[in-house]
Amino acid sequence: MPHWSVYTGNSEPHDGIDDLPAPPPWRAFDGEPVLPAPRDTDDRAAVSPDRAHRARTYVASPETVQLVNAALVLRRPLLVTGPPGTGKSSLAYAVARELRLGPVLRWNITSRSALSDGLYQYDPLSRLYAARRAAWRAGDTRPGGEVPGTGGPQGVPPASADVEEHLRLGPLGTALLPYGRPRVLLVDEIDKSDLDLPNDLLNVLEEGQYEIPELMRSAREFSEAGTAEVLADGTDEPVAVGRGRVRCRAFPFVVLTSNGEREFPPAFLRRCVRLRLRRPDREQLTEIVRAHLDTPAGDAEHLINRFLNRAADGELATDQLLNALYLTGVAGLDADSRDALADELMPYLSATADGDGF
């Protein structure tokens, strides 16, 4: 393995991330204060059993291993494209497990997703209600409905120190905290976003930092120290944010997945390391089946052949084969019934293959 490689793809957890080469000078970050690494992803309280299983059983190709390491060393996002069922999102969990980088921060993209959703969420209405409840309990209101200390006739609170109680960092915002080790951020199905999101991500991922205006106003007006305690994504433990500015120290390992449903701007693409996952061949399928089900190769060979033959005529996903193998094994069917059930469990994913879209 080349000396610059830290991810091996063999699924055995290790601390090789500590040997990661220094970043290029143009990708070095110095965020403070340095935060400790989160808990290991082997902790079942930190990751769901299904994702833990996918992380342990992920089978990485040599190309995948090489490009994951390239993204880690260059401190660049990894754009992973490929057909459904090729393990694009599972790759993030596999890397996090092997390199002991803690729970994966996951941002599921929809057509309504905006950059602010990934950075942080702020609820001004809950803050207004909290101010009104506090004044009501104190029995102290002023003529015209003004609540003392809120600075407005409608009880609208100013940018004061309690703003952090109504603000929570999102997965992207949490990944860019100044952790001593990189966090893993999965931005899943970015091709479903509106046209602006990839471009909006450019500056944040390029600079490794962002600002929270609500906290910046609070720091200027009410706090000499300017430090706020804010909840991070995936935890109930607050982290310190100084004067509303967040800057990473170890650039996160960012996995952006796409099913190839759209083209991305050239400026976005040139800032990413690009990995194209392809349909697994017979040897890879056999290894995947063994990893997931511990099924002897001879027992699985018939359905693997059937899967490959069907896949020649249309889109199929690897988990369809796994479902068929598991269920036919549990049911204990004869050969004809097994094949019929397997065909039902492996329908084509594209309308052109079977004419009805199902």
Rank of each mutant, 00 (worst) to 15 (best):
246 V>S: 00
100 R>Y: 13
35 L>Y: 10
103 P>R: 09
356 D>R: 10
7 Y>R: 08
7 Y>L: 03
212 I>S: 13
266 P>Q: 06
207 E>C: 01
65 V>L: 09
80 V>P: 13
303 L>C: 06
225 A>L: 13
102 G>F: 08
295 T>R: 12
275 L>P: 08
16 G>L: 05
236 D>K: 09
2 P>N: 13
136 W>H: 04
139 G>M: 01
26 W>C: 08
84 P>A: 04
320 Q>V: 09
267 A>N: 03
354 D>V: 07
83 P>D: 10
335 A>D: 09
96 A>I: 03
23 P>G: 12
344 E>P: 01
234 G>Q: 03
75 R>S: 09
170 G>W: 05
185 L>D: 13
261 E>R: 11
319 D>P: 05
161 A>T: 15
320 Q>R: 08
66 Q>K: 15
158 P>C: 08
78 L>D: 04
67 L>N: 00
319 D>V: 14
282 R>M: 12
7 Y>P: 06
18 D>G: 13
96 A>P: 04
69 N>E: 11
235 T>S: 14
338 R>N: 04
131 A>K: 03
247 R>G: 08
296 P>I: 06
189 E>K: 01
242 G>Q: 05
75 R>P: 10
223 S>W: 03
292 H>Q: 14
69 N>G: 12
10 N>C: 13
278 R>M: 06
229 E>Q: 12
354 D>G: 12
120 Y>K: 06
47 V>Y: 07
242 G>K: 01
9 G>A: 12
123 D>E: 14
31 G>A: 09
335 A>E: 10
161 A>Q: 15
219 A>K: 01
307 F>V: 07
67 L>M: 01
240 A>L: 01
233 D>T: 02
286 T>E: 15
163 V>H: 08
182 P>G: 07
122 Y>H: 13
190 I>Y: 00
62 P>Y: 12
232 A>H: 06
160 S>C: 08
102 G>Q: 06
197 L>E: 12
37 A>P: 12
330 V>E: 08
248 C>T: 15
30 D>M: 06
325 L>H: 10
238 P>G: 00
194 D>K: 14
283 E>I: 11
178 P>E: 02
94 A>P: 04
118 G>W: 03
242 G>Y: 02
143 P>F: 14
104 V>F: 05
63 E>V: 07
114 A>Y: 13
320 Q>G: 03
129 Y>N: 11
234 G>K: 06
246 V>Y: 04
112 R>H: 10
144 G>A: 04
267 A>H: 04
341 L>P: 03
56 R>F: 11
240 A>M: 00
13 P>I: 13
176 L>N: 06
302 H>D: 10
169 L>C: 14
26 W>D: 15
121 Q>W: 04
265 P>N: 08
163 V>D: 04
261 E>Y: 03
113 S>H: 06
226 G>L: 00
161 A>K: 14
52 A>Y: 14
150 T>R: 05
187 V>R: 00
122 Y>E: 07
151 G>A: 09
209 Q>Y: 00
165 E>N: 14
331 A>W: 07
